[in-house]
Simulated assay, not measured.
Amino acid sequence: MKVLYTTSARSDHNGRDGGRSGTVDGHFSVKLDLPKELGGAGGPGTNPEQLFATGYAACFMGALRFVAGKEKVALPEDASVTATVGIGPRDDGAGFGLDVALAVALPGIEHARAEDLVAKAHIVCPYSEATRKNLDVRLSVV
């Protein structure tokens, strides 16, 4: 693979429980807090699952735009991707796993055509490729 872009991020020693994470170049920085559901205080900071959901939604929209462009389909201005990410103990008891669902809204595009575009975007999207065979990503057109 020919790498076209690289970035690096760092998290401090507190990690997801009151720590800070951000890009090494300083373009992005965020305070982290552990949600109450995971035993934390549920402070105002974000968490890795929110960051993953945000990244996946943006990446999938990029893949969808790429596929639609190749097929000469104009995406509506109000098109959106909502990524829902859950975390919990794995069934094998050895650690934690993620649960991911992507809900894609393509108003004005016939449902079957929208489903086809979403399926093709799932092949193109690097986040989808990274998760393939590791977790089941549920896709829906809403």
Rank of each mutant, 00 (worst) to 15 (best):
V73S: 01
G62A: 04
L51A: 05
L64E: 02
V24I: 15
K70Q: 15
L106C: 06
V85P: 02
G40E: 05
A83N: 09
P44Q: 11
L106A: 07
P35I: 13
L98I: 09
A57D: 15
T84P: 00
F96T: 02
Y56N: 07
F60Y: 14
S29V: 05
M61G: 07
A57F: 11
F52C: 07
G55T: 10
L51K: 09
A74T: 09
A68H: 00
G26F: 12
F60M: 09
E77M: 01
T54G: 15
N47I: 04
G40Q: 07
S29K: 11
Q50D: 05
L34E: 09
A41T: 13
T84V: 08
V85R: 03
A79M: 04
P44S: 13
V81D: 06
K70G: 15
V100P: 00
T54A: 15
N47E: 06
D78A: 14
G45A: 11
T46N: 07
V100I: 14
V67Y: 02
P89D: 05
F52K: 05
G26V: 08
A79T: 02
G97R: 01
E37N: 08
V73Y: 00
A94Y: 00
M61E: 06
G55E: 10
G62R: 10
D33P: 10
C59E: 12
F66K: 03
F66Y: 11
G88V: 07
L38C: 07
T54D: 13
A57M: 14
G88H: 08
V104I: 12
P44H: 07
G45F: 10
T46E: 05
G86R: 04
R90N: 06
T82A: 11
G45Q: 07
Y56V: 03
P107A: 09
A68Q: 01
L32R: 01
L98G: 03
Y56A: 14
T54S: 15
V85Y: 05
A58W: 06
D33M: 10
Q50Y: 07
F52S: 11
N47Q: 10
D99T: 15
A105K: 05
F28Y: 13
E77H: 02
P89A: 13
G93S: 13
K72S: 13
G69H: 01
P107N: 05
V100F: 02
G26A: 12
Q50M: 14
V24P: 03
L38W: 11
K72N: 14
G26K: 09
E71H: 10
E71L: 13
A94R: 11
D91L: 08
D91K: 13
R90A: 15
V67I: 13
E71D: 10
V24S: 12
V67D: 02
L75W: 05
I87P: 00
G95N: 06
P48E: 08
H27Q: 14
E37L: 11
T46A: 10
L38V: 04
F28V: 13
G93L: 12
M61Y: 13
T54R: 08
E37A: 15
P89G: 11
V100C: 08
V104T: 04
S29W: 01
R90T: 10
